[in-house]
C-alpha cells in the first residue's frame, strides 16, 4: 500500500549461499602463509553479505598473492604481472552490478604495476584492492621487492638491500583523489575481516595494505610484530575500522586518528616506530570515474543507430 510494500521482492525465494559456495580450488599456499587468512576473510565477507558468486569477480596479477582468484568459486581474472588494475577498471567500467576484489602483491603493485597503481587510485572506481605485502617476491623465489627492508638479503641482493623501502601507504596518500586507505595485519583475523569489510562497503577505490607473513622467505619480518604487539599501533576513531573493545585490548598501543584528516594520515603513514593498523584515510566525496563510464548503459539498439546515423550524415555530400 502507498508504494511501500515490496511484495514482489519479498516473495521471491531467497537463495542462501554458504561458505562452501565461495570456496574454489584448495589453496596451494605454504602452511602459515598469511594469504590463507585473507582468503578466509574474503570468503566470510562474501557469505555474510550474501554476494552471488556469479556476480563477484576477483582480479589479480601475478605472484603468490595473485593465485587468489583460483581459490574462490566466483568469476576470476588471473592476469599479467603488474596489470591487475587496468583490467579491474575495465571490468568495472560497464558493470555497476558486480562485486569486485583486486588482489595484488608488493612486486605486482609497487614495482611493475606502479603506473597503474597511481592512476587507479585517482580513477577511484568502485574496487576493493588488497595489497598482500610480504616484503619479497615469493613466487619467483626470493628477489628483493620495493617494500623489502634495508639490509635484507635476497637472491638478487645477496649482500643486502641498499635502498630504503617504498612506503605504499605514503605513496597512495600522495595521489590525488584517493578515497580509502587502510592497513591491517593477517595475524589478527577480526581486524583483518573488519578492515576488508569496511573497504568493501566503501564506494570508491579502497586500498588496503595487508602485512602478510611469508613463512618461507621472510618469516622474521613480521614475527617480531606478531610477538611484541607494541610494534603495532591500533588506530581508533568512531569513523575508523570498528573493533570489539575486548579485541582492542590485544593492542597495547592505541592512537586516536580522524580518518578524514589527510595531513594527519600522511603523518601516521610515515611514522616508522610501529606499524599503524586501521583506517588512515577516508573521503566519501572523491570523484568517481565509473559514474562517468556507466552513462549510456542500456541504450536501445534504435537509439544507438540513430546516434550513428546522425554522425554519419555529417559527412554526406
Amino acid at each position: 500500500m502507498h508504494g511501500e510494500r515490496r511484495e514482489w521482492e519479498a516473495e521471491a525465494p531467497l537463495r542462501q549461499c554458504t561458505l562452501e559456495d565461495y570456496q574454489g580450488a584448495t589453496p596451494r599456499w605454504c602452511p602459515g602463509c598469511g594469504d590463507h587468512a585473507v582468503l578466509s576473510a574474503v570468503q566470510r565477507l562474501a557469505r555474510d553479505k550474501q554476494l552471488p558468486p556469479e556476480k563477484t569477480v576477483v582480479v589479480s596479477g601475478i605472484g603468490c598473492s595473485s593465485r587468489f582468484p583460483h581459490y574462490m568459486a566466483t568469476y576470476g581474472f588471473h592476469g599479467l604481472h603488474g596489470r591487475a588494475f587496468p583490467v579491474a577498471c575495465g571490468v568495472r567500467s560497464r558493470r555497476p552490478d558486480l562485486h569486485m576484489f583486486v588482489i595484488t602483491g608488493d612486486g605486482d603493485c609497487c614495482a611493475i604495476g606502479t603506473a597503474h597503481w597511481i592512476h587507479t587510485i585517482r580513477y577511484n572506481m568502485d574496487l576493493t584492492i588488497l595489497l598482500l605485502d610480504n616484503n619479497i617476491y615469493g613466487l619467483t623465489k626470493n628477489q628483493t621487492s620495493p617494500t623489502t627492508h634495508l639490509g635484507e638479503r635476497s637472491n638478487t641482493h645477496p649482500r643486502g638491500n641498499v635502498l630504503p623501502p617504498l612506503n605504499p601507504l605514503s605513496v597512495t596518500l600522495g595521489v590525488a583523489n584517493a578515497s580509502f586507505v587502510a592497513q591491517t595485519i593477517d595475524w589478527n583475523p577480526p581486524h583483518l575481516y573488519n578492515t576488508i569489510r569496511a573497504a568493501y562497503e566503501h564506494k570508491g577505490t579502497s586500498f588496503v595494505r595487508v602485512l602478510q607473513r611469508c613463512p618461507h622467505f621472510t618469516s622474521h619480518i613480521f614475527a617480531e610484530a606478531q610477538q611484541d604487539m607494541n610494534l603495532v599501533t591500533l588506530l581508533t576513531h568512531e569513523d575508523g575500522i570498528p573493533l570489539d573493545p575486548q579485541l582492542q585490548r590485544l593492542f597495547p598501543k592505541h592512537q586516536m586518528h580522524d580518518p578524514h584528516d589527510l595531513a594527519a594520515a600522511r603523518g601516521v603513514a610515515s611514522q616508522e616506530a610501529s606499524y599503524p593498523v586501521g583506517l588512515l584515510y577516508r573521503n566519501e566525496n572523491a570523484a568517481r570515474y565509473d559514474l562517468q563510464t556507466f552513462q549510456g548503459l542500456g541504450k536501445s539498439q534504435a537509439e544507438k543507430m540513430a546516434a550513428t546515423e546522425q554522425w554519419l550524415s555529417r559527412f554526406e555530400i
Binding site: 567500467s93 558493470r95 549510456g296 546522425q310
Partner: peptide
C-alpha cells in the same frame, strides 16, 4: 560521438593500461 551511442572513450595512463582496460571490459560484457 560515442557517448551519444551509449559508449565512452577511456584515455588510459599508458598503452598497456589501454589494452588491459579493453580486455577487462570485453571479459565482462561486450
Amino acid at each position: 560521438a560515442l557517448q551519444e551511442a551509449g559508449g565512452f572513450v577511456h584515455q588510459a595512463e599508458d598503452e598497456i593500461a589501454a589494452i588491459g582496460f579493453a580486455i577487462g571490459a570485453s571479459y565482462a560484457g561486450k
